[in-house]
Design a protein around this nucleic acid. Structure first.
Lengths: 254, 254
DNA sequence: CGTTAGCTTGAAATCTGTCAATGATTGTGG
DNA sequence: CCACAATCATTGACAGATTTCAAGCTAACG
């Protein structure tokens, strides 16, 4: 257990950008962020395929990629959401319900965890933190809805293009994508589990995107070489990733 | 504007079951429900295809069916969720963000709306109401995730079977389905927009379910004649529709 | 009673999945 | 540092599910 060092609190690119997503909502000010950072966080390392469970705590991804997943009774697997650095793993604190889905590390990842009681106490002092959590929860849900749109309405090529745009955007705002280039090491089978496609078809879809000069790849390094074209193919627009405040809401602001 | 009559507060089958879903979480007691019912609710009637927007208020469906929907930039339509009697239309009060999706009445519907300020004030007095809202929000999100599972992993027949089981379950707990028979008057095209299928294929899928004696229909009346078989085909299990409390959570319980 | 929306049917086209085999890459232990 | 094993990516041929198109039918509604 430790508080976070100054460099980890820093929310500019290149520094560990832990709370950048929180500040990016505009709902937290610097003092909120500092107060959050000074909670006692414990760091946990996860190997690929490790389940992550944090029912009685609150966690944020510091590095790597987790996924929420679900399976049909027969065992077919569906990934429901990508949890990237800066994202909250577990909203039980807010929802009061057990998470209904499993979370799994897709690559080697590290997660920061803090105690629920302490965070609850902090929220009493700084209700904006609760607002920010609720905003994040809502945006995560909007991402799930966008996935429904992809699975229901878009072809394989469109889904993949849309997906890459989303990941680029989300990594970019955390300082983990530059010039639309980033490291992303899911297997094609895993991509398929997320996009509702077979591994073979993921492969062919990526080839088609390369053939059209929309992307290029080397190993786990991805470059979106024609971000405009990719957005056009995928019908991507990032509105759902930001959210717009409805009004000053006063829940818990007593 | 009016408070609700005694019969509308009643949460047993056959009486207007407005707050049955709230009590069903086990998070509200009778005094909470009464307090909710005594807020000034205004009733609104919606015709099919009417948009419903309630950003600055809080609404519950009293009768009919609304859907959240979203469209690709090219205009392809995807329904994201079915909002049935007893369901909350709008969680802006809780999330603090503008809803990111449109809501549309699928059939003639009525919606009850109350003022945000009054509800907020009531929540200060009765924080369990906030807990209940958060639980509902979480369950709605779990339904979206189950839709992702359907779209990503299940065949047309499985999706349809699963869908019918879910609707039966949800209507049933509100007293609107008996013996697995209920009235449900969406067009096949609309079902397709929800399940990610073409209208033609929806038709063939329903025929196949009838041929297997799993369902029967007369007009908008649906009977699940072999609920066990239907659940087996769809891989349906209602766990995601109830949620399990994680712990007594104290947000706002100050 | 006519009109319109919705339902049903068939045939053909398309997309995506499955199967099976072959390369390429990565990580590990010697 | 190399060799090996295991995982992952790629390819081709084929099968299957679903869409599209087009037409006819039915039922609800003014």
């Amino acid at each position: 257990m430790m508080g976070l060092s100054a460099s980890e609190i820093n929310t500019r690119p290149k520094d560990p950008p832990l709370f950048r997503r929180f500040t990016s909502t505009g709902l937290l000010d610097r003092t909120d962020t500092l107060a959050l950072a000074q909670l006692p966080w414990s760091k946990q390392s996860l190997a690929p395929h490790d389940r992550f469970e944090a029912n009685q705590s609150f966690s944020i991804v510091a590095a790597g990629i987790l996924c929420r997943e679900n399976r049909t009774p027969e065992g077919r697997r569906q990934l429901l959401g990508m949890i990237l650095p800066g994202d909250v793993c577990n909203y039980s604190l807010v929802t009061g319900l057990k998470p209904m889905t499993t979370q799994v590390a897709m690559v080697r990842s590290t997660v920061l965890t803090t105690d629920l009681d302490r965070l609850t106490a902090l929220i009493e002092l700084r209700p904006r933190i609760l607002s920010a959590l609720l905003a994040h929860l809502t945006i995560d849900n909007a991402m799930t809805e966008e996935l429904v749109l992809s699975l229901g309405c878009r072809s394989a090529l469109e889904r993949m293009a849309h997906f890459l745009c989303e990941i680029d955007y989300r990594l970019g705002r955390m300082g983990l994508s530059e010039n639309h280039q980033f490291t992303f090491s899911l297997t094609q089978a895993e991509l398929g589990h997320y996009l509702g496609l077979s591994a073979v078809h993921v492969n062919r879809t990526l080839q088609e995107l390369r053939r059209r000069k929309l992307i290029s790849t080397q190993g786990s390094r991805v470059a979106l070489t024609d971000i405009g074209g990719l957005k056009a193919v995928g019908g991507f627009s990032p509105a759902y990733l930001t959210g717009t405040p409805a009004f000053a809401h006063r829940l818990g602001a007593a």
